[in-house]
């Protein structure tokens, strides 16, 4: 019976719905490129280690590191969101 149901189901299963991680990360693509892969002067984020990304974002937010625009942007995100962002970009291929 299970086999029959599987056969009747649409052949293509829907891809995973875009979640919170994508929603947060997508805002960063404007500078850092699609999926965090930059082809220009802005650093790529894809494939950097989660620990590095979280540290960098935290330091931009606190002001411990001074960038140009990143200090102003990082202040708009919570701890939990910075963790989601770091995990999302760390999970992409460079």
């Amino acid at each position: 019976m299970l086999a029959a149901l599987l056969l009747l189901a649409p052949l293509r299963l829907p891809a995973e719905a875009p979640g919170r991680g994508f929603g947060l990360a997508a805002a960063c693509f404007g500078c850092h490129g699609t999926d965090g892969v930059s082809r220009g002067a802005i650093p790529s984020l894809a494939g950097r280690s989660e620990r590095f990304l979280l540290l960098a974002l935290g330091e931009y937010r606190s002001g411990a590191s001074s960038g140009t625009v990143m200090n102003r942007i990082a202040r708009g995100y919570s701890d939990e969101e910075l963790a989601l962002l770091a995990a999302w970009f760390a999970g992409r291929r460079e």
């Binding site: 404007g30 930059s38 082809r39 220009g40 002067a41 802005i42 140009t68």
Partner: peptide, 18 residues
């Protein structure tokens, strides 16, 4: 910031049209 301006333009173009 002038360099980042160009970098952002490159990223926006690649993201929208690439």
């Amino acid at each position: 910031e002038a360099v980042f301006a160009a970098g952002t333009w490159t990223s926006l173009n690649a993201d929208a049209f690439g």
